[in-house]
Nucleic acid binder design. Structure first.
Lengths: 239, 239
DNA sequence: GCAAAAGTGTTAACTGTACACCCATGT
DNA sequence: ACATGGGTGTACAGTTAACACTTTTGC
């Protein structure tokens, strides 16, 4: 039994869904509402020329998938702005790439909402709630990444990766509300995060807004590494 | 710009962690305690000759990863016994295979505890709490799969894939306790699962045991497809 | 003073654990 | 009768939503 099997090899790429919350703001007197946005760029070549696609690229010979996805992102944004990056899932449908069999491993990345990163001309931030038609299976990957993000926001401290370094509770409420897609109460959010030890007052207070109102305390997240904060949602060990 | 990049291709394999709960039983008067076990086999060739390894094999040309992992498992167990199969994660460390660069996508599979599947001679069920040294990064993949399974048991209905088709509440308690690694109360487990609509009485009762005691009602799971049952562990939408 | 926004206190609903107690069966 | 395991009822703790109310600011 020395005969080896003849095995196929495949093109393998890493692919990033990089998210960012843009909060509501005024542009020319109109309110642009907040949105959860994902980084994409318009393809210059076939297949799917002109369509929006996620940043992706082939894995190099001596590189992990994680390193590869970081390399792909580096050409679009400043890597230091990426506060969190985790593996999502691997897509392998033989028909997903019409030109060439490609297996793709998707990652989920998060950028804090302060940064308005400068992007190359053909790149942009797509509103996740109104995705255009996208290349390959990228739209379905984005949907799956949004689901993962929304779940994890509830039982982990991932908020740190979407929020600015320092924030008032209403700013944080807006970040969560936009990311989750539903209204959140600043009062209750504060209590939940405080109970879990995620929040730390800076001692400073934000200058009050033009419209008056009590100046808000500033907070920051105590830890900036991802961790599960709601350890046992159910079925805790007996005694 | 017609010059294409020279891209590398890789050997890509699918890999299965197939779990099963063996409940406590008597063998020659000795109690063999229950254990969460994972399917493995002993390698016949280098690298890692003689070591335990997870079932795995290369992806074929026109096959998804899911189909591939099912194909690998088919040579070890009866596929109809696999009640649940989901993708876990993809490992890409260039050094993980000393012979040849291989990217591996791991799956998590579950087999109900009734079935004592007949295995090929070189295959076996390893106790997850006392893993032997394994080939490649397989031990760390098992650890990661166990973590995922334990989390999901709490907030999904995945119990259906580990339990027998019909069971008493104490049998189900044992399955959960072994899988989770800590004691679980049958009383409270029943209430939790009933509240979530996962449990359905069959109307039958099990014959009482040799030692006496009230005969137990039999139950089954209402649904046999994986679903999340604890929708909002935290941060529910306002109003 | 008044509007606006932040912050506090309190209540109610829900979920899950712990535990006492009752029930049905074999010997 | 009594041991054994199944089943029920209830009290308690923890967590979160809802909402009324107070505080601090700008105008």
């Amino acid at each position: 039994m020395t005969a080896d099997l003849v095995v196929s090899t495949f093109r393998h790429e890493a692919l990033a869904t990089l998210f960012r919350v843009s909060t509501a703001r005024l542009v020319d007197g109109n309110v642009v509402p907040g949105a959860l946005r994902v980084l994409a760029w318009q393809r210059e070549r076939d297949p799917y020329q002109g369509r929006w696609a996620l940043p992706s690229g082939p894995v190099a010979d001596n590189e992990t998938l994680g390193a590869c996805v970081a390399r792909q992102l580096a050409s679009k944004v400043d890597l230091r702005e990426i506060a969190h990056l985790e593996q999502l899932e691997t897509r392998s449908d033989p028909a997903r790439d019409p030109f060439e069999r490609t297996i793709a491993t998707a990652y989920l990345g998060l950028v804090p909402s302060v940064a308005e990163p400068l992007l190359p001309a053909n790149a942009g931030w797509l509103d996740v709630s109104a995705l255009p038609s996208m290349a390959f299976d990228h739209a379905s990957i984005v949907t799956s990444a949004v689901q993962r993000l929304r779940r994890k926001l509830s039982y982990t401290n991932l908020g740190f990766a979407l929020a600015p370094p320092e924030f008032t509770m209403s700013q944080l409420r807006d970040v969560y509300a936009v990311a989750l897609g539903y209204e959140v109460s600043a009062t209750n959010l504060q209590r939940i995060l405080e109970r879990r030890g995620q929040l730390e007052p800076t001692g400073e207070t934000a200058s009050s807004t033009r419209a008056g109102g009590r100046p808000a305390q500033l907070f920051r997240f105590t830890r900036h590494e991802a961790e599960v904060t709601d350890q046992f949602a159910v079925l805790r060990p007996a005694h």
